[in-house]
């Protein structure tokens, strides 16, 4: 089973790298959806194998991250007429280089973390989780459009879920569902905000939101 987990995580890392180099927003949205489904797959291959709990979780995750979020975000994107990430703070060439750097750093750092190996299902878990979290943060700080910032938040959350699903076995289903519900509402609220900001500003560059200072 560990090889399955490792394979899934390898694909997850691959999507991370694709994300930092992609400028088309619809492509980014699909990539984040794929990531979400991948993370939902993880509990099915956990040491406890398939049980009702992991199946419920998988179904809910697929529905939310695979279907609902992409739909909500693409509608928000279309309504504000932002198809591409134009001129991010960090250029795409540099972004990919930084992405690779993050990957290397994660593999190095994961070895240093004092997580007992008995807890972790597979050797790739810590590096993949760490890299996904860092890439999420990188997307939030390096991109201009509000939609990409929401995507960055989702990537960050995927990283944290990966870490949680693979390391802590005792989290009750209720809490995981609560967490998902919160992310769901967060995406919704952010999408509504994007509509409103757009109506007020006629654009959604989050970097123009900078009147308030001091």
């Amino acid at each position: 089973m560990e090889t399955f987990t490792d394979n899934i995580l390898a694909v997850l890392l691959f999507t991370d790298l694709l994300l930092v180099g992609m400028s088309r927003l619809s492509g980014c949205i699909s990539l984040v959806a794929v990531q979400g489904v991948l993370v939902g797959l993880l509990p099915l291959f956990s040491p406890e194998h398939v049980n009702p709990r992991s199946i419920v979780f998988f179904v809910v995750v697929c529905a939310l991250k695979g279907v609902v979020f992409p739909v909500v975000l693409s509608r928000a994107m279309r309504s504000v007429n932002a198809r591409r990430e134009v001129e991010p703070f960090v250029g795409f060439g540099w972004s990919i280089l930084i992405g690779v750097g993050i990957l290397a750093f994660s593999f190095y750092q994961a070895k240093q973390l004092p997580i007992p190996s008995a807890l972790v299902a597979g050797t790739m878990v810590m590096p993949a989780a760490l890299a996904t979290i860092l890439i999420g943060i990188f997307l939030i700080v390096s991109r201009r459009t509000a939609v990409t910032q929401v995507l960055g938040y989702l990537v960050l959350e995927n990283g944290i879920s990966t870490f949680g699903l693979a390391t802590v076995s005792g989290i009750p289903l209720l809490i995981e569902l609560g967490l998902l519900l919160d992310v769901f509402v967060a995406v919704f609220v952010m999408a509504i905000m994007i509509y409103q900001i757009n109506r007020e500003f006629d654009h959604i560059d989050a970097d123009r939101l900078s009147t308030l200072k001091g």
Binding site: A146, I160, F201, L209, T211, L212
Partner: peptide, 24 residues
């Protein structure tokens, strides 16, 4: 208003990301 939306967006993103760290 433009400024209140700006404040709300900042609050949402900064606090959501921050609180995500707490989950870690």
């Amino acid at each position: 208003s433009a400024v209140s939306l700006e404040a709300t967006w900042k609050y949402l993103v900064v606090c959501s990301v921050g609180v995500a760290f707490a989950f870690m």
